[in-house]
Write a protein that binds this DNA or RNA. Structure first.
Length: 280
DNA sequence: ACTAGCACCTGATCGC
DNA sequence: TGCGATCAGGTGCTAG
């Protein structure tokens, strides 16, 4: 579900609502809700005070008044909600952190998301060590990012989704960025110039910034912010989920293909199939 | 060392 | 109505 704009929307909501608050009671309601280790580590956070909420790519973590951090990933369907303590349990409630009158609740239909306790190395949780900077990170370095793209030998769509190359982009914004840059998703990275990578990174940054401004993309209630509100970028999508619709640029019918076990949406005219000899 | 393929889940929807 | 196939915003493991 949530890609960078959605996760950042959630991060902002969490920062506004729970920085300074203390975890009073912690309850884990599903075995898959916590990262490999134990629920003991989670419940040991009772009494910890939240100092800040950080993000890299799609990973979130809470800085505490102790060395460890509370880390979370939303997976495909995870949500953090701020709820009155008295509110009824959600159907897919997986963990509850009581803050007094309110709860921070972790809800996740598909259970690909998780929360856990980790040490920090280089100022980042251990599970985030292999995640590259996203384009909004002050540590983001364009030249290094392009070099990592250039080292990949695969289709550009796969490389765009590789969080170790550049983080934050998921299936929606990958398709939107490729459309904006007029690049076919199956274009081989070996055939792309440095300028082309640079342009694509700009498109990805641009589309994610625009989505962030309107609270992200919500197709249904699987993605909502900490107050339960939807984002509005769905109406601005050019290709994702638009199979059979007209391309907003040229009117040609948007096509959907499957590879890497996921759907890719593109305009066959604006993003022509790369030639066998690869020139484009 | 790297890439491709698949597993990990629940639920909605579509065609028969 | 029912049932199977397919699809859904992500990541990590592992076989080659």
């Amino acid at each position: 579900m949530p890609e960078l704009p959605e996760v950042e929307t959630v991060r902002r909501g969490l920062a506004e609502n729970i920085v300074g608050k203390k975890f009073k009671e912690i309850e884990v309601l599903h075995p898959r809700a916590t990262s490999p280790k134990s629920i003991a580590a989670l419940t040991s956070l009772r009494g910890a005070r939240v100092k800040g909420v950080k993000r890299r790519g799609k990973f979130l973590w809470f800085e505490l008044d102790r060395p460890e951090v509370l880390v979370g990933h939303l997976g495909m369907s995870g949500q953090f909600l701020i709820q009155p303590k008295s509110a009824q349990d959600e159907r897919h409630l997986r963990a509850r952190f009581n803050l007094g009158r309110h709860d921070l609740r972790f809800i996740d239909q598909r259970t690909f998301g998780w929360v856990g306790v980790e040490e920090k190395i280089n100022n980042r949780p251990t599970c985030v060590q292999h995640i590259a900077a996203d384009p909004f990170d002050p540590e983001f370095n364009l030249d290094e990012t392009i070099s990592r793209f250039q080292r990949k030998k695969t289709e550009i769509k796969r490389a765009l989704l590789d969080q170790g190359v550049m983080s934050g982009v998921g299936n929606i914004y990958a398709d939107e960025a490729l459309w904006r840059s007029k690049i076919h998703p199956e274009t081989r990275t070996e055939k792309m110039s440095k300028a082309r990578f640079s342009q694509l990174i700009s498109s990805a940054t641009e589309v994610m910034a625009e989505a962030l401004e309107v609270g992200g993309t919500s197709f249904d209630d699987l993605y909502i912010n900490v107050n339960g509100e939807s984002g509005y970028f769905e109406r601005s999508l050019a290709v994702y989920g638009q199979e059979g619709e007209g391309c907003p640029r040229c009117g040609r019918e948007i096509r959907r293909i499957t590879f890497a076990n996921r759907s890719s949406h593109f305009c066959p005219k604006c993003q022509p199939t790369p030639r066998a000899d690869g020139n484009r």
